[in-house]
């Protein structure tokens, strides 16, 4: 009986401690205040197991299909490169500031294709990784998997060539500017049509703003 009482008291103290931690804002959610190493390892293990269990029955298409790779190149450059970078690329403001740190392109190249597809499709909670499956059909997601599987042997020049030869940010509709812009515009973010003025992100909802205002909007 005394053991039960002890457990109840400890449980109550634990719950009170958790409530106090949350209520008084003691837990720091800042991305520049990393988890304790043990916390990180536990979360990382949970992430890996969660993905592995859910991805194990996924059937992988032929990832050597040139059209699949070509499709994935443009979408990778538009949707992934800002965080995951590319051969020869420097860190970006976004990749530096994210926590947990997104895996680099070379790590993606080593990923299991089923796990890569699952993560692309469903995203990962509280990590900054979006669920691209909300806007992309599976075949375009597989295109990105096929493309990242080329990374282990890819040079910076080959990366640029493949992006230039790709159809750009194109996955059958619903494409929006997701930060990296159109790969055909280099590192400059632009609308998909050559004739639309660029929107100033500081100018609210109006997509038609002075192009000069846009060019000066990113200034720090």
């Amino acid at each position: 009986m005394s053991t039960l009482k002890t457990l109840l008291v400890l449980g109550a103290l634990g719950a009170a401690g958790a409530a106090a931690t949350i209520g008084f804002g003691w837990y720091n959610v800042a991305a520049d205040d990393p988890h304790w190493p043990v916390t990180y390892r536990v979360i990382d293990l949970a992430r890996a197991r969660s993905i592995s269990v859910r991805a194990e029955d996924i059937e992988v298409p032929d990832l050597r299909d040139p059209e699949l790779i070509r499709s994935g190149a443009g979408n990778y450059s538009a949707m992934c490169v800002t965080c995951h970078l590319s051969p020869g690329a420097e860190e970006t403001e976004l990749s530096v500031g994210l926590y947990p740190k997104p895996p680099r392109w070379d790590a993606l190249g080593q990923a299991d294709p089923r796990a890569a597809f699952w993560v692309l499709k469903h995203g990962i909670k509280a990590s900054g990784m979006p669920a691209w499956g909300k806007s992309m059909d599976d075949k375009y997601l597989w295109g990105m998997v096929a493309f990242i599987k080329q990374f282990p042997t890819m040079t910076a020049a080959q990366y640029r060539e493949q992006i230039a030869a790709s159809p750009g940010h194109d996955h059958g509709g619903g494409e929006t500017d997701v930060g990296a812009g159109d790969p055909h515009a280099g590192s400059h973010s632009s609308p998909s049509s050559s004739f639309e003025p660029e929107a100033d992100p500081m100018a609210g909802d109006d997509p038609v703003t002075d192009a000069h205002a846009s060019s000066e909007g990113h200034d720090h």
């Binding site: 230039a164 030869a165 790709s166 159809p167 750009g168 159109d182 055909h184 515009a185 280099g186 400059h188 632009s190 609308p191 998909s192 049509s193 050559s194 660029e198 192009a211 060019s215």
Partner: peptide
């Protein structure tokens, strides 16, 4: 050339913008 970007061949343009 458009909006700070460049396409350097006919094929690149046709496959791009």
């Amino acid at each position: 050339l458009e909006s700070g970007g460049a396409e350097r061949s006919r094929d690149e343009y046709l496959n791009g913008h």
